[in-house]
Amino acid sequence: MIYLIDNSNNDYHQHTITEMFKLRFKVFGQTLKWDVKEKNGLEIDDYDHEHTNYLVYTDSLGRVKGCLRFIEMVHPCMFDGPFQFALKNLHDFKRKDYWELSRLAIDQDIDENYTNEEMQLVGIKLLQAYMLFGLELQKIECTLTIGYPQVIQFYKEQGLIFESLNKICLNAQTNEIIEVAAFPTLNYCYDQYALKSQLSSKSNVFWYMCPIAKEFSALT
């Protein structure tokens, strides 16, 4: 199940949010050994703020196994901060309907309730949910993201249409390269991901807790 969490409903998802920050520390701090902020085993930074949205994937036992966050670029985002060197024409993208996607994390620890097959689809399902958000809930003209080229290439091969905007070498010795890429929100891309995830019904792609009705509702 994928939950859409934003400022209006995060009160209802405190446990899920905490588990998400734990997963982020596990993936980015412990596995990838990025120099991220950590407190009590949680990875939280300056861009987890009131304008930040999350999609969080849980397995059949309700355990958080994947997440991503996205911020409309009119608000503070990573391109303003740690990645301000990554995009020369950042001001072009600091506008309504242009979003930054970051912190895509997938738990690699599989077990009998979270199989390798399921794990392979977590990123696809999260991005499918993100595109549905961009197509039907909030207009997203373009998304900017930063990632390792091989990760961007993987999602491109699954059907996202990326345009590379920049490539930066972070560490010449280890040849650590990151890529800045943009992708539009297109029904074509959504359909490609829906084929891969086998989630054809839009009403099952993610769930959103409506804070007024105080009940979960499917997208449609």
Binding site: F93, E141, P184
Partner: peptide, 8 residues
């Protein structure tokens, strides 16, 4: 190439 209608 593809170009979506973008305000940018």
């Amino acid at each position: 190439w593809l170009f979506p209608p973008m305000h940018l």
